[in-house]
Design a protein around this nucleic acid. Structure first.
Lengths: 235, 235
DNA sequence: GGTGAACATTGACATTGGTCAAGCTTTCTG
DNA sequence: CAGAAAGCTTGACCAATGTCAATGTTCACC
């Protein structure tokens, strides 16, 4: 498990013995789709590293509406809000595709941040990147139409592809994608159909084939402040 | 100016000589409404502290639509993305009410973060709070109606008031409030009228009188994951 | 104190996305 | 393999918000 911890981007620059120290407190577990890792009601003092699978972060109102703020996969971690302390999180986390997850007490991170300012800087830059992504998300939900948001989502899985026929496989249920993009499943269904008409892509279950990448980019990125391929700026 | 820097929440715990060092590089200026402090096109290497007035942060698409992600006032600072380096910011900043602003080269912060991990932790927690606010914002724009978002906005200015007739003065133009809440000015106008009917508040120009605070809370906070008074959790 | 510019409101209408209900398809499970 | 459950799609309809254009109001400046 130590090697898996050390492979996490945020830990890559740490010394072996530090990671070994973490590993003693760490717990790895395979979690099934549907499992709630934590929710606003349950106090929580861990951070979670996703090794495989997908986990959605969401906020839920008293009337049952939910807003998905992010869906994370391998290389990502979450639960770092507050960094120490046992307060309930302001959001919940639910596994949406079977996942391998390592959990680690938060206080270990907090200690290492104080001890090692280079590490602290790495955590800060991670948080900064997350804030930027949220800003982006707010922009998308404000200025993009539903079909455009779907196009934007698909393009994230086309970053490397340069030759046009690209085949994308949706990594989790369409319902989750819909909420991740701030729309209802019904709207998602119709918006995907519209996107198909507009950009000539083909949909077969969870598989999407994009014959003309440029056409999708043109349709989607016209309503965005950045343009394809819009990766995070290196920090 | 050193005293004004030292009064900034993020600097409060720093030693005098450190702040004095910052002050040598700092520039204070009064900025008029309408001034663009920076935009995505202009490389920028400063962070900005608001002493008075209001500044909006926004993202703008190629077709001219804009999404306002935040509006900041005294005690807030912005431009810390990246923390060092001269890359263009991924967003712009525009003064929306005459403001006194101190600007400071970003590298000073980066240096102090590496030198003083307690300070680094403070910056990290500031960023964490901002990310949480963005999450909140995404939730609001997903599950609240336009009148509810306005109600929520008004309630932020009622945090201290416990006795019911409260008088709130909108601190910047309604157009800016509208965009801050992710809606068009016309929608804002109508939604405010609706809110008036629903909760019995009265509007006179930029002044809003709330006779029955509880009624506003009931109407607004039913579509939210937290409830009034929903301040940031202490970090 | 008058005038223009900026800000705000209103009406008419178009568009988007949400809701509810039904039916279909895929996947899981015994 | 059968049956059930979960996920997805579609239709009909409705509510919310955006758009465009006209008009009203406020405020700063001469």
């Amino acid at each position: 498990m130590q090697s898996q911890l050390h492979a996490q981007p945020i830990f890559r620059a740490l010394k072996d013995d530090v990671v070994a120290g973490f590993a003693e407190y760490a717990a790895q577990k395979r979690e099934k789709k549907g499992t709630i890792l934590f929710s606003p009601e349950t106090p929580n003092e861990k951070i979670y590293f996703v090794l495989s699978g997908w986990v959605k972060l969401f906020r839920e109102t008293m009337s049952g509406d939910e807003a998905v703020t992010d869906v994370m996969t391998s290389g990502n971690f979450f639960g770092e809000i507050g960094l120490s302390g046992h307060d309930p999180m302001p959001y919940g986390a639910e596994v949406v595709e079977d996942a391998d997850i390592i959990s680690l007490p938060r206080f270990l991170l907090a200690e290492e941040i104080m001890r090692n300012s280079l590490f602290g800087m790495a955590v800060l830059q991670n948080m900064t990147r997350q804030r930027m992504q949220r800003d982006m998300e707010i922009e998308h939900r404000t200025v993009q139409s539903a079909p455009q948001r779907i196009g934007c989502f698909l393009l994230k899985f086309c970053r490397d592809a340069k030759t046009s026929p690209v085949r994308v496989h949706l990594p989790f249920d369409k319902t989750v994608v819909a909420h991740r993009l701030g729309m209802q499943p019904e709207t998602f269904s119709r918006a995907l159909a519209k996107l198909r008409e507009e950009t000539g892509l083909r949909v077969q279950g969870a598989t999407v084939e994009i014959d003309n990448l440029q056409r999708l980019v043109d349709y989607t990125c016209s309503a965005c402040s950045s343009s394809f391929p819009c990766e995070d700026k290196k920090l």
